[in-house]
Simulated assay, not measured.
Amino acid sequence: MALSIGMITFDSANPGPLATWWAELTGGRIEQDNGGYFYIVALPDSAQKLGFQAVSDPTPGKNRVHLDLNTEHLDGEVKRLVAAGATEVHRQELDDFSWVTLADPDGNLFCVASGH
């Protein structure tokens, strides 16, 4: 037997706007809106999905799991994400590999990388 990733899910006090934000920035689409409680975003050209579920008290502090996204145009993509409401947290470079840690509008950390 083997496991496969079915979905990566974010807890949110207000999941609708967060699902919309991620759908717009990934080129995905909201596939399901389950009465405002749970949204599913289908990512383009992928079987992967992002979930956004309503919780009354999202987990505080640094998230232990995060998304690593890739781009060929790191600075341009970071500018686009920040203009859309993300917050730049940290930049890192290691040899020919660079990445930027950002936070989405709910404060969930994610990385955008370029290189290798």
Score class of each variant (00 low, 15 high):
Leu3Cys: 10
Leu3Asp: 15
Ser4Cys: 08
Ile5His: 11
Ile5Gln: 13
Gly6Tyr: 10
Gly6Phe: 03
Gly6His: 12
Gly6Cys: 05
Met7Gly: 08
Ile8Tyr: 07
Ile8Ala: 14
Ile8Arg: 06
Ile8Met: 14
Ile8Gln: 07
Ile8Asn: 09
Ile8Trp: 05
Thr9Lys: 04
Thr9Cys: 11
Thr9Val: 12
Phe10Gly: 01
Phe10Ala: 03
Asp11Ala: 10
Asp11Lys: 07
Ser12Ala: 15
Ser12Gly: 08
Ser12Arg: 07
Ser12Pro: 09
Ser12Phe: 00
Ala13Arg: 15
Ala13His: 13
Ala13Val: 06
Ala13Pro: 06
Asn14Pro: 05
Pro15Ala: 07
Gly16Pro: 01
Pro17Cys: 05
Pro17Val: 02
Pro17Lys: 04
Pro17Ile: 02
Leu18Cys: 02
Leu18Thr: 02
Leu18Phe: 07
Ala19Pro: 01
Ala19Leu: 03
Ala19Ser: 09
Ala19Phe: 00
Ala19Glu: 02
Thr20Asp: 15
Trp21Ile: 06
Trp21Asn: 04
Trp21Pro: 00
Trp21Ser: 05
Trp21Arg: 05
Ala23Met: 10
Ala23Gln: 03
Glu24Arg: 08
Glu24Cys: 03
Leu25Trp: 03
Gly27His: 05
Gly27Ile: 00
Gly27Asp: 05
Gly27Phe: 01
Gly27Ser: 05
Gly27Asn: 10
Ile30Arg: 03
Ile30Gly: 01
Glu31Ser: 06
Gln32Cys: 06
Gln32Trp: 09
Gln32Asn: 13
Asp33Gln: 11
Asn34Leu: 12
Asn34Arg: 13
Asn34Tyr: 10
Gly35Asn: 13
Gly35Thr: 12
Gly35Lys: 12
Tyr37Phe: 12
Tyr37Arg: 13
Tyr37Pro: 06
Tyr37Val: 12
Tyr37Ser: 13
Phe38Leu: 10
Phe38Arg: 04
Phe38Cys: 07
Tyr39Trp: 06
Tyr39Ala: 01
Tyr39Asp: 01
Ile40Thr: 07
Ile40Gly: 02
Ile40Ala: 02
Val41Tyr: 00
Val41Thr: 03
Ala42Trp: 01
Ala42Gly: 06
Ala42Lys: 09
Leu43Asp: 04
Pro44Glu: 11
Pro44Thr: 05
Pro44Cys: 06
Asp45Tyr: 01
Asp45Gly: 04
Asp45Arg: 03
Asp45Ala: 07
Gln48Glu: 14
Gln48Asp: 15
Gln48Lys: 09
Lys49Ser: 09
Lys49Ile: 00
Leu50Lys: 00
Leu50His: 02
Leu50Ala: 03
Gly51Cys: 10
Phe52Pro: 01
Phe52Gln: 00
Phe52Met: 02
Gln53Asn: 11
Gln53Lys: 11
Gln53Phe: 05
Gln53Ile: 09
Ala54Asp: 11
Val55Ile: 14
Ser56Phe: 08
Ser56Tyr: 08
Ser56Leu: 11
Ser56Val: 11
Ser56Arg: 12
Asp57His: 14
Pro58Val: 04
Pro58Tyr: 03
Thr59Lys: 13
Thr59Asn: 14
Pro60Gln: 10
Gly61Trp: 07
Lys62Val: 15
Asn63Gly: 14
Asn63Cys: 11
Arg64Phe: 11
Arg64Val: 12
Arg64Ser: 14
Arg64Met: 12
Val65Asn: 13
Val65His: 13
Val65Ser: 14
His66Trp: 07
Leu67Val: 08
Leu67Lys: 03
Asp68Glu: 07
Asp68Arg: 04
Asp68Asn: 08
Asp68Gly: 06
Leu69Cys: 06
Leu69Glu: 00
